[in-house]
Each structure stands twice: as C-alpha cells, then as structure tokens.
C-alpha cells in the first residue's frame, strides 16, 4: 500500500466516510471535514506513520492531494520550507 492509499484509508476510517467517496482530488470542504476533524486526521496520520507533522505544514493541508504530497516529503525527510512559507497567515486548526 502506498502513501496515498494509506492516507485515504485513514480518512475513511477516522471520518466514517463511505469508502470510494474519498479520492486524491477530494477537498476537506467537499468531504465535510472541519478544523477539529482535521486535527483528528493529523493525529491518526502521525500515529500511523510515526512522524511529527509541523503545525506550519498541517495548516496548509486542504485537500487529500496536499496531505499526500506533504506527507511524502516529510517521510522522505525532504525540506518542507516552501510549504511552510505558503502556510504563513493560514487559519489556526481550531478556535481556543
């Protein structure tokens, strides 16, 4: 199973979404995933892949493809600073 398949599997499981409805092109908005759901998915991804996803990267994930791309880079130990730069001024994950 590659990263994309694993991400989709986790989102289907965590969000109780019908399998098949989540594709690489789905956006969180389309899937009804709000900011609190988002942090829950991040938690599951971190647990699954045994990694830390920096807040600055997490804030930029708005679609499945973005999740998979960012995750792949983190997993490969690649520089994610361009993603961080994009995320400047992004909305916080949840209201406190």
């Amino acid at each position: 199973m590659n990263v994309a398949e694993k991400v989709i599997e986790i989102i289907v499981r965590e969000q109780h979404i019908e399998p098949g409805k989540v594709t690489l092109d789905s956006t969180f908005a389309e899937l009804g995933i709000d900011s609190l759901d988002g942090v829950s998915i991040l938690f599951a991804l971190e647990e699954e892949f045994k990694i830390d996803i920096p807040d600055s990267v997490a804030q930029n994930m708005k679609s499945i493809r973005q999740v998979v791309d960012s995750l792949t880079r983190v997993l490969e130990g690649k520089d994610v600073s361009d993603l961080v730069a994009l995320a400047k001024g992004g909305a916080p994950a949840a209201n406190t």
Binding site: L36, V39, L42, F43
Partner: peptide, 9 residues
Amino acid sequence: TRLHPFTIP
C-alpha cells in the same frame, strides 16, 4: 508522545 486532539473537548 501525543494525546488525541479530542481530549480537551
């Protein structure tokens, strides 16, 4: 090393 994000709510 981390707790579930729903812990606080």
